[in-house]
Design a protein around this nucleic acid. Structure first.
Length: 421
RNA sequence: GUGACUGUAGCUCAAUCGGUCAGAGCACCGGACUGUGGCUCCGGGGGUUGCGGGUUCAAGUCCCGUCAGUCACCCCA
């Protein structure tokens, strides 16, 4: 259509806003259940905050401009740099572990497509100051409990988990030079999205022998900790990581989310800064993009904020999650209708109706009534159309009738201290 | 940024081979049902067919451009 919101931006009409509110409320509720506390930062940041982490090429994907003070600025495309700065600035004063979450609106200048707009809301949950896998388990449990709270089941959503350090150790055991590891990660990251032969050719082009290529492809298939231990358990680095992962999965089971999680070494996450366990949540039908992604980034706070603290976190956007919920018929909305509709039998009673509405409103209820005097029938029709559950009818004899618009039941009530009794 | 496909009222769609084809349903507003609603009936507002240009006697229907949308690639912080 000719006029409307900018490409990739959304107008939230009351219905859509109610759905968004439902989603964000669930995020906050669950994060708080895990004792995370909310924070926020500025939506506009120095451009340098992002180029320092991701290089100049990131600028092409940012909403950036020069402000009137001559500063290079950008709308935040992600929350992590802001988070890192905030934590680093007060690192010594913060009780560890730091358990913070935020629900920022993020922006990126990219061509939109399904599940990707130029603006979205993203839950960010981060945990700083604990290097053990107990923290990794806690973090993934937050993500899983959120989708559970939204009505999804382990048959709808799967958490796929990998460990970059394990993968690195495995590659080392296969004789892949340390310097080649990132390139191999790149191939593994794409292995699901391109023909296997192409992936094999790319690995061979890195100088890997046939046996190593076969082994790597094998790792990206169905694997289990038992199988890995049997095949590579004699390698000290690998054995150490496997022991950690076994504890990790044990903790996930203890937290009640074990049934949602699969070990899948194909999960690399594009970001270069992940250092340990990484995970993504997908719909089980593979129809949508990743719902959520995150992992451990133990060196990022050091490089961004100069504070050497282990950290991990994940981001979960509202777009893909919303698409999935709608598809499954699970998208709910915060109720937006008023609590009461005050109606009156005689048009001359408009003033009395307004007095009643005023009293109820001061008592905490939301109340609507017909702004122009009209027949009672029309008022009730409007009340029903507005989705209001109950109407209060002011009769000509001044009696108040509370009528359920769903069942039609009526009972006489009285106003007492702003409430109907 | 590259490529493919699509673009008719708020929504879902219709309009034979280009020729009164700019319509329907839903939604919205109003009226009737004469003063307790969601049914029914009647009526109304709303589109220069995304926009611009071209071909033609004639274009929503063909061609080009542009904008927008969808999908894939890129990227995914």
């Amino acid at each position: 259509m000719a006029k409307g919101a900018l490409p990739g931006f959304r107008d939230f009409y009351p219905q859509e806003l109610a759905e968004r509110a439902y989603l964000l409320r669930t995020w906050r509720d669950v994060a708080r259940r895990f004792a995370f506390v909310e924070y926020d930062g500025p939506p506009l940041e120095p451009l340098e905050l992002y180029t320092r982490k991701s290089g100049e090429e990131i600028v092409g994907q940012l909403y950036n401009f020069v402000d009137k003070g001559g500063r290079e600025v950008a709308l935040r495309p992600e929350m992590t740099p802001t988070f890192a700065r905030m934590v680093a600035d007060k690192a010594n004063a913060l009780r560890k572990p730091v358990r913070w979450f935020s629900v920022p609106q993020l922006f990126r200048y990219e061509r939109q497509q399904k599940g990707r707009l130029r603006e979205h809301f993203q839950l960010n949950v981060d945990l700083v100051g604990e290097s053990d896998v107990t923290a990794d388990a806690e973090l993934l449990a937050v993500a899983v409990e959120i989708v559970r709270a939204l009505g999804l089941t382990q048959n709808d959503v799967r958490a796929r988990v990998s460990d970059r350090r394990l993968l690195r150790a495995l590659l080392g055991a296969l004789g892949v030079p340390e310097g080649q590891a990132p390139a191999v990660f790149g191939v593994i990251d794409k292995i699901e999205r391109q023909p296997l032969e192409i992936s094999r050719e790319k690995l061979a082009a890195l100088g890997l022998g046939q046996a190593a290529v076969d082994a790597i492809v094998g790792l990206t298939g169905r694997v289990s900790l038992e199988r890995l231990r049997a095949d590579y358990g004699t390698v000290p680095d690998v054995a150490e990581r496997l022991a950690d992962l076994e504890r990790y999965f044990g903790y996930l089971r203890a937290l009640g989310v074990g049934e949602w999680v699969d070990l899948d070494l194909k999960i690399v996450r594009g970001l270069a800064y992940y250092t340990g366990i990484v995970f993504e949540l997908f719909d089980a039908h593979g129809e949508f993009r990743a719902i959520c992604g995150g992992g451990r980034y133990d060196t990022l706070l050091e490089s961004l904020g100069g504070v050497d603290l282990p950290a991990l976190g994940f981001g979960m956007g509202d777009v893909v999650l919303g698409e999935l919920l709608r598809k499954r018929g699970l998208m709910h909305a915060e109720r937006s209708a008023a609590d009461y509709w005050v109606a009156y039998s005689d048009p001359a009673q408009l003033g009395q109706a307004m007095e009643l509405a005023g009293a109820l409103r001061r008592g905490g209820a939301s109340v609507e009534y017909a702004l122009k005097a009209q027949q009672l029938g029309r008022q009730l029709k409007a009340a029903a159309a507005a989705g209001v559950p109950e109407a209060v009818i002011v009769r000509e004899d001044h009696a108040l009738i509370l009528k359920s618009l769903a069942s039609g039941e009526e009972r006489t009530v009285r106003l007492r201290e702003g409430r109907l009794v």
